[in-house]
């Protein structure tokens, strides 16, 4: 269960969004450029501090303005795939992929110790090959980010986020900077994620095509405010919805 309720004034735009996700799968945050979509997921990740509200993921409070809880970004266990990949240019693909795995496994071993057999090195190496296979990037392990195509970079970025063992995966328009063939190459990989790795995904986009192909549910945002939320079919076909009005304008 993921419960988000955030408010933030950013310049002249007031961001307001409240929704909860109980089903696994892909939740799309949809809206025009400047509607506040990225700001919402940045607040979930801890990149921006909300003025008010709360962020709860699977029973853990990551932010609560009332009880003054604000868990540091690196302790949230929320994966983030950025629009521009943001691979570390000085590390090769394998090192990029294992960057987060190192953080998680060492912490799990030190603090949680919940399952000794699964918190050490073997988990990392097994996951690395699993993720490499799932995303079709095993042959790229020795390359550097500068030698990858746009689509390959994004697949590595997704793999890197997954290997950090997140409880929630955020994706900020991961296909926006790619051309059509690269988009089509990447879409099936993203569509498979929730079923294959069991992590809920919040996916920011302004592309109708991506929503239709990926999203199980949709949050529609307009001028900073989340106005519609529900299963994809329902939100997109609801008569008189904000989305329909904006599409007709």
């Amino acid at each position: 269960m993921i419960e988000i309720s955030v408010k933030k004034q950013l310049g002249s735009v007031g961001i307001r969004a409240a929704f909860s996700i109980s089903a696994p799968g892909i939740t799309a945050i949809f809206g025009d450029s400047g509607a506040g979509k990225t700001s919402v997921i940045n607040m979930i990740a801890g990149l921006i501090r909300p003025d008010e509200g709360s962020v709860r993921v699977h029973g853990t409070t990551l932010f609560d303005s009332k009880s003054r809880v604000n868990v540091a970004m690196h302790k949230r266990r929320i994966g983030y795939v950025f629009q521009d990949g943001r691979l570390f240019p000085h590390l090769d693909v394998k090192q990029n992929l294992l960057y987060g795995a190192h953080n998680r496994t060492s912490r799990a071993t030190l603090n949680e110790n919940q399952d000794g057999a699964e918190s050490g090195g073997p988990l990392t190496s097994r996951s690395l090959s699993d993720v490499g296979e799932l995303l079709g990037i095993t042959h790229l392990f020795v390359r550097r980010p500068g030698q990858l195509s746009g689509g390959e970079k994004q697949r590595v970025a997704i793999g890197r986020a997954l290997l950090a063992n997140p409880r929630l995966l955020l994706m900020d328009e991961p296909l926006a900077s790619l051309d059509a063939p690269r988009k089509n190459e990447l879409l099936p990989y993203i569509a498979r994620l929730p079923a294959e790795v069991g992590v809920p995904v919040i996916y920011v986009t302004h592309s109708m095509d991506e929503i239709e192909r990926l999203a199980d549910q949709v949050l529609y945002m307009r001028d900073g405010i989340a106005t519609e939320f529900g299963p994809t079919e329902e939100v997109l076909n609801k008569p008189g919805s904000s989305y329909r009005r904006s599409a007709l304008l």
């Binding site: 690196h74 949230r76 950025f82 960057y99 987060g100 950090a164």
Partner: peptide
Amino acid sequence: RRLEAAAATLGAHPLRV
């Protein structure tokens, strides 16, 4: 600095970043 933010989302402590 966006790379540093990416490292933090991967669980890296500021010193490790």
